[in-house]
Design a binder for these strands. Structure first.
Lengths: 123, 123
DNA sequence: CTTGATCCTCACGTTGACGTGAGGTTCTAG
DNA sequence: CTAGAACCTCACGTCAACGTGAGGATCAAG
């Protein structure tokens, strides 16, 4: 599979795939002329990488987690990394929830204002 | 109130406060000699800014929202911005939740491995 | 055999929220 | 009155995940 097809099917740019390789997240064979060749599994792997990037993991953290996907052999470091990141994500969800609730309040207030522009202080 | 105290009480760096001023998020008086003077309310304001930054809002978005806090007068642009950001945050929470659940699976698998290292494939 | 699509490797540019000196002034406590 | 803490303004550095050409090789089709 060529890089363009992987990119399209995984929903990322060609440049991103080259970057992932540079970071050691995806390994690609090469044709004699130097073009990258990917296995089918690369598509799912890249989607998983995107999932983790979207959750704010750094490439370093992803690099520490990915080998587990391949081997299903977990070192203590991997397990700890997994749990650390899960905790970080939980914290992040909490922070986002707080912000969401706060924006909700403000939106209610602004709706109130729009329904009674001239008597806003009377509500 | 001087900048150092605001920084400590709001839990941010002095540099961050100067940056917020540069971005038009916090206004500070000046003493004749040029030192910044903040009102008490600055502490809460800065905490709110931090809440929004933590939720991934850009300073531009925060700048469009903050006037509402002061005046309680919402322009349609403010309301739209509030709702856009709320939606963005909801999406982000969803993405984080997906990643969290996925990590959960992996952690369960890795725990399984650690409990039966030699018979991992037999589980 | 040629042409247009796809691929390659540098390598610099981007964006945001600050960090980090440099070099100098002002405040405060003793 | 003096030392050290706190403040000031530049202004360049950082980090991450790519974007964006430049300049050139390779591939698939007619």
């Amino acid at each position: 599979m060529r890089i363009g097809e992987v990119a399209e099917r995984a929903g990322v740019s060609v440049r991103a795939l080259r970057y992932y390789e540079e970071q050691g997240l995806v390994i690609a064979d090469r044709t004699p002329s130097g073009h990258r060749r990917y296995p089918e599994s690369a598509v799912e792997r890249v989607r998983f990488i995107q999932l983790l990037y979207a959750a704010g993991l750094a490439s370093k953290a992803i690099r520490q987690i990915l080998p587990f996907l391949d081997t299903l052999v977990a070192t203590p470091q991997m397990t700890r990394r997994l749990m650390d990141e899960r905790a970080r994500i939980r914290d992040q969800i909490d922070a986002l929830t707080r912000a969401h609730d706060r924006l909700d309040e403000l939106i209610r207030l602004s709706a109130e204002y729009e329904n009674a522009p001239a008597a806003c202080s009377a509500t």
